[in-house]
Design a protein around this nucleic acid. Structure first.
Lengths: 260, 260
DNA sequence: TTAATAGTGTCTCTGAGACACTATCGT
DNA sequence: ACGATAGTGTCTCAGAGACACTATTAA
């Protein structure tokens, strides 16, 4: 293989003596948090789920599809005229019909042989879709099904390519983000009660400080990045009126050298 | 320019209709912390610096080089047989002669037009080189000079391509990592005194808890990821014997919902 | 003895966490 | 009135942070 670096050619701005990748893709782990057991006047119990697509047995031309029948995260090729970030937005909108979602890059997967079709580099993103917006999703050309799975179950599926690794990493990343950044707000409406935030965090932690109601209610008022909305209450989680809160935009600085 | 490869093989999977990238590179922001003002029996004062290379005016054939005379971070093309992570290690060793460095991926730069030579994707890494190992660095073919710059000065240089952005991001990332992870250990010898760790952290923070000696000395003993080395002391930072510490491998869990 | 750094004694005050209690409101 | 959830009162105890102090040692 011509993997030797031809310096002379490079100096002439000609990069094409290098072997170049066969493809550049964006793959997106789509997360949502769905309320299960939503009784009226009760705090929600939530589940962290992700959207997977099942690859068709045959492609649009009727030929056998690669990695057929396996589950995979949504993705597609990146165009020369866009960044991978833009491509992720475009593809996610094509897949779910939802715009302006929160998307973050979390890794690059480029291990040789990861895709049997060639040297294909995957930029991995995670996206957060508020549950109520995720209704009109549809299977595309290459997909026979689109479905949501709880993160508890997803790793036991038969997954395409190296998506098991990508999915595992994405779950670790989003769990950490939920606890160490204000990412939780992406799963919540702009105004929310303490028990709604608590239910979101409960999908990734069982920390007693967060799970104990009196503790957590008091915490809400102290946290610099959350503010109570003066005099605004709601009764969707209980018969008694519950205070509404919103996230505030403040820089978050902390360090492990402040731990005890 | 011909950037297509292996056309027939790809055809049956219909990826060949996509334009493929012209190049796939790894760029590495190399950081080191150097003691300045190292008087005997005194705690060190340190400076966070990064290694840049200056691009030659002309290439080896005497033709004008692209982005000539500007400063850039080290980097090079990734080969099909390796991951970008392996490439970063290889290139860094070629550049500095040092093996087994701590390297972390922190971003992908793929904005259209970022490199005038074509559609070239850059995987950005930061690397940490202990200061004493960084002596035999040398200018390569494309470089007229290799030099260390304090992070305080580096952004006012004339930087090649989109390296200003990459460097800015790398500084933000490493500052955050120093405070929120145990990355500081990569800059330190295996056994270190409190004032050495303090000096490393001082390059990115002026938090009073960290800068106050009595506070910080006491903190060291409580932190779950640091342990004192029983009965082992040293006098390199003071005439009085100072306790040696080492980093312990423990999982670090914390959340912003524990802040006050 | 001095100068410089490492490290401790001790006080105050905040706030975490536990647990029992009160408040509110639809049914 | 009941039941369920939101929210408060209050106590205890740990630990953070401030500041003054002591300890150690080369020169």
């Amino acid at each position: 293989m011509n993997s030797r670096h031809n310096k002379t050619a490079l100096e002439q701005y000609s990069v094409n003596d290098y072997r170049t990748p066969d493809g550049y893709t964006a793959d997106i782990a789509v997360f949502t948090i769905v309320p299960i057991e939503q009784k009226p006047f009760s705090p929600p119990i939530m589940d962290l789920q992700m959207m997977l697509i099942q690859r068709s047995m045959q492609n649009s031309e009727g030929k056998p599809n690669i990695e057929a029948d396996k589950w995979a995260i949504a993705g597609g090729f990146i165009d020369e005229s866009e960044t991978s970030y833009m491509a992720a937005h475009r593809e996610l909108e094509e897949e779910t019909g939802v715009k302006d979602l929160h998307i973050e890059h979390f890794g690059v997967y480029d291990k040789p042989g990861r895709d049997p079709r060639g040297w294909i580099i995957s930029n991995a993103f995670f996206a957060i879709v508020p549950h109520h917006k995720l209704s009109n999703r549809k299977a595309g050309d290459d997909a026979s099904d689109v479905r949501m799975f709880s993160v508890k179950d997803v790793l036991s599926l038969d997954l395409a390519f190296d998506h098991k690794q990508i999915i595992q990493d994405s779950i670790a990343v989003i769990s950490q983000k939920l606890l160490q950044t204000t990412t939780a707000k992406e799963f919540l409406p702009a105004e929310f009660t303490y028990s709604e935030l608590q239910a979101v965090l409960a999908t990734v932690t069982n920390d007693p400080v967060i799970m104990s109601n009196p503790s957590f209610i008091r915490k809400m008022k102290q946290l610099p990045f959350i503010e109570a909305i003066e005099g605004k209450t709601v009764t969707r989680t209980s018969k008694r009126k519950a205070q509404l809160y919103r996230f505030k935009e403040v820089p978050i600085n902390y360090s492990i050298y402040h731990m005890s």
